[in-house]
Each structure stands twice: as structure tokens, then as C-alpha cells.
């Protein structure tokens, strides 16, 4: 039988929660037979998505971020959602080195990092409603 499990955490958009969110997601994924490198990839991708929600999603406002993780067999799916401003142009936002907030020293690499460290990244966003980033990663078979 395929192993399946899921979890969800919710927290306010405080930057102190970035560390909590990525460690919680990595600890959940560690139920699978993962390498240290795969865990680190997940941690980094979650950190990018949660930081985006804090810096851009909830710019100048308060709100909650949800990180939902699901394991189906060897597939890990992580959804990071906010109910913030939404992204006006998702395609532009995903371009390497593009940032809407250079004054905050954003490197513009967030989505590029997510795409590099995960197998699949989808972004669903609606202005005034919020943004959900859905990331998938297949965990490699171990000997």
C-alpha cells in the first residue's frame, strides 16, 4: 500500500515564522526516505514561498499564511497560500532577477530557486484575493 499523509500549519505573516515554517515542512517530509540534500531543497523552496507571502503577499498588511503538505507514495506536494494582495503579473514575477521591491534588497531569485529545487511549481493568484504556490517533488528511490 502506498504511504500517504498530510498536514497543515497556519501562522501570521511575521518574518520570525519563516524558520518555523521551513523546518516544520522538512520534518514532515522526513517521514519519507529522503536524503539530506532533498530535505534541504524542500526547506529552501518553502522558505522562498513563505518569504514571498510575507514580503509581497502581505505588504503593509497583516494576515495568515497556510503551509499544507501532502505525501502520496514518493510524491511530496506543498502548498503555500496567503490571502494578500495577489500578483498582478505572474509571468513577470517568475522571471529570474525580477523583483517588484528592489528597495528591500530582494534578489529576484525566489521563484527561480523554487523551480530549481522542486520538480514542479505552479502559481495561482488573484488580485485582492491572494496567492497560492503549489510545489511538487518526487523523492528518489533509495537502495
Amino acid at each position: 500500500m502506498r504511504f500517504s499523509n498530510d498536514m497543515s500549519i497556519q501562522f501570521p505573516n511575521k518574518s520570525a515564522n519563516e524558520g518555523f515554517a521551513r523546518v516544520a515542512a522538512a520534518a514532515f517530509v522526513a517521514q519519507l526516505d529522503v536524503t539530506v540534500e532533498e530535505l534541504s531543497d524542500v526547506k529552501t523552496a518553502v522558505s522562498e514561498a513563505v518569504t514571498n507571502a510575507i514580503v509581497h503577499g502581505y505588504e503593509n498588511m497583516k494576515g495568515y499564511i497556510t503551509v499544507a503538505c501532502r505525501i502520496e507514495g514518493d510524491l511530496v506536494e506543498i502548498k503555500v497560500s496567503d490571502s494578500g494582495h495577489g500578483i498582478p503579473d505572474v509571468e513577470k514575477a517568475r522571471q529570474p532577477l525580477y523583483t517588484s521591491r528592489p528597495e528591500l534588497e530582494r534578489s529576484g531569485m525566489g521563484f527561480t530557486v523554487m523551480e530549481t529545487f522542486m520538480d514542479e511549481v505552479d502559481v495561482v493568484s488573484a488580485l485582492g484575493v491572494g496567492t497560492t504556490v503549489i510545489m511538487k517533488k518526487r523523492i528518489s528511490e533509495k537502495d
Binding site: 529552501t44 518569504t51 530582494r106 534578489s107 527561480t112
Partner: peptide, 13 residues
């Protein structure tokens, strides 16, 4: 032990 793209932004700055 860990760095994400915010670290890159800080170095670039």
C-alpha cells in the same frame, strides 16, 4: 547551515 535568496539579496546590497 542554511541560506535562501534573501541572503543573496543581502550580499548584493
Amino acid at each position: 547551515g542554511f541560506m535562501d535568496s534573501s541572503g543573496i539579496g543581502a550580499i548584493m546590497g
